[in-house]
Structures are given as C-alpha cells and as structure tokens.
Simulated assay, not measured.
Amino acid sequence: MPDKPSPTLRLAIDKDALAHNWRALDRMSGAANAGAAVKADCYGLGVDSCVPVLRDAGAKQFFVAHWSEVEAVARHVPAASISVLHGTVKPDDATFARATGVIPIINSLHQAQVWLEAGGGPCHLMVDTGINRLGLSMHEVGDPLIGHLEIDVLMSHLACADEDSAMNGEQLAAFRAIIPTVRHKSVSFANSAGIALGSDYHFDLTRPGLSLYGGIPRAELEGEIRQVAMPQAAIIQTRRLAAGDRVGYNATFTASSAMPVGVVSLGYADGFLRSWAGGHLLHGNAALPILGKVSMDMIVVDLSQAPDLREGDWVDVPYFLPDAAQQTSLGQYELLTILGSRLKAR
C-alpha cells in the first residue's frame, strides 16, 4: 500500500503543560494525593498521548467511566490502579474486574450484590450526597451488604464545585457524617474545582479531570493551569471575493468589498460546532474571522490580516478553554470531549 496522504487536521498536545497541570493540582491538594480522571479517552485528547505523561508526572490512581475504556488505559498503568466509575451493573462486569484486578466503584445495593456474588474483593464505594446521579443513597449506607464490602476508597461527588454555592458545604457536611459509619481505607471527594475549594474538601485522594487538560472551572486555578490542547487545520483553498459575494449555507455573510478568503479543513464533524460562527482562527497574532456558517467539513475565514497564506498552510484554533467557552457558550468539558477523530488521525 502507498503511504497515506498527509492529514489536513492535527491536534498538538502540550505534554509539558499536562504534566505541569497534574503537579499543580497535586500540590494544591495539600496532604491528599491527586489521581487522574482519564475517562472519555482522556477527555478527548487521547489515552496513549496523555496517560503515560500523567503516570510519569506521579499519578498513581486513574479513573474511567466505562469498562470498555479499561483496555486502553491498562496498556500504560497497572490494572489495579484503574477504577471504573459505572460499577458492577452486570455479572460480567464483576467477572472482568476480578480477572484483571481493575477496581469497581460500587454505586448501589444491586451493584454490591453483584460484586459479592462474584466473589468480591477490593472496591470503592460512591455515596450520593446530593447530586442524585450515581451513588448509594445515604439511607442505604447501613445496609448489611455494605458491611461485607472490602472498601478501599469511600467517595462522593460535588454538584456545584465550580460555583460559590451553599450546596458545597451541605454536601461536605453530609459526607462527613457518613464517613465514620463505613469501614474504608481512604476518602475522596474533590474533583478539579473541588480542589480549589480548599483543604476541607481534599481528604486523602482528589480526582482532577478537566483541569489536567487545561480547563479552569474556578478563578483560584487561574495562573496554575496551562493550555494542553492545540488544534490546527490546513487551508485547502484560497480565493478572492468581490463586493456582494456571499459565503456558505444560507448566504449569511456578504462581502462589502473585495477580500481574500481561505477555505479551512475544519467543521462540525470535527467538534467545531456552529456556535463558533462569529469567532476567528489565528495565524500568529493575526485573527482570521469566520465568515458565514460552519459546515460539516470546512469553514471560510477572512485572510485580510494574513494575505500571504496559501493552500496547505496551517492555522490555529484558539482553544484556551475559558475563552473558547465564552465565545461558543459551550462548556469547557464539551469543548474537549467533542473533538473529532479526524483531528487525532495519524
């Protein structure tokens, strides 16, 4: 087979920034150790690119959501360091966990029963303190099934850590009341934003995710967290518009005068959604405004500030997450996890 043509999309990962972010979050966790949430293919940035960096930076516990995510992570770290947030819903989940040494997070009495019937072993226990997603209800903590579990980490999850909400303190108080009633080895409560809430929320283990990959959910993290994801796209055609020419679907942009434009290999199939309309790409310090609507596979940009750009040249997508979130009205989590597979193709 001949060599594949060069891609017209690429995603640069700043591995030094990723390692820096873990170390910063570990330091901010005080006496607690920082783990690493690596679910959703490391929030869209790639397990093979990110997990070795996090491991080498010092992370020792890794969290995924689905059992299907285990295999990719286990290529880089011991299976016993991987925990699965969705727990033992089915008997084959428990069978897989026992065979591999991966740690299930038990979220309900049903999951506890499945795990114990499979033979049990080390597990974590999630207790719901108010977010009403996964987790054992607080009134179920005293059930005899829970007393039979071999719980390593007792955990809960904050609902409003990215806000100055009274609910943070309410959940903390509820969790503190539960801790003495459950036999366990260590305690975990804080995600990225929870780390920034302070030492009361840190306990023994923190579970940063978003901020590892450049997200800044609270002001206290500003200056601590560096940008990790840097998408780039190639110009695949240049042209010159005349006054009155229109651009894209529904002709939402009309040129008021002659102008150079570029067609860029990037669209909503790559996670660059139509909410970017009205924004810009970058070439060095030059802003390249987006003209008209975002299409599935391409956008058109104004090259007036960079008229020397040619077909095959690369332009940058401004992906500093707080700014991109403000521009698009998308969440920082969404901006990472929607990045399409073509950006990561090799």
Rank of each mutant, 00 (worst) to 15 (best):
E117L: 03
A269C: 08
G209Q: 03
M1C: 03
P7W: 14
C160F: 12
L273K: 03
G135T: 02
P289N: 15
A229W: 09
G119D: 00
A12I: 01
I103E: 05
F62E: 00
H86D: 08
E69N: 10
G87S: 06
S192K: 01
A177P: 06
S341V: 10
A79C: 07
E69C: 11
H280L: 03
G120E: 09
P217K: 03
P122T: 15
G215M: 05
A34V: 00
D16E: 14
D41Q: 05
S192T: 10
T129A: 09
A40S: 15
I195F: 08
G312R: 00
F320V: 00
S295L: 13
A65R: 11
L154Q: 02
R55E: 12
G214Q: 05
I195Q: 10
N168T: 02
S341A: 11
P318W: 03
A34W: 12
R98W: 00
S165P: 15
T95N: 12
R346L: 08
D245E: 08
E140N: 11
L136K: 01
P2G: 15
D56V: 09
L134N: 09
V187I: 15
A166T: 10
L288S: 07
I290A: 01
G194V: 04
D16L: 02
L321T: 08
Y268Q: 06
N285K: 15
E220V: 12
G119R: 04
R23V: 03
H66E: 12
G142F: 03
D152V: 08
R98V: 08
R246F: 00
G142H: 11
M296K: 09
P2V: 13
S49M: 06
E334V: 06
Q113L: 02
D313P: 04
A65K: 07
N168K: 06
A251V: 05
A229G: 13
D200H: 09
D270S: 02
R274N: 07
H184I: 04
G215V: 06
F63E: 09
N21C: 04
L149H: 07
R274E: 06
L25V: 09
S186D: 03
T206H: 13
L339V: 05
M138R: 15
S186M: 05
L145F: 10
G130E: 00
T88P: 13
P180K: 11
Y268N: 01
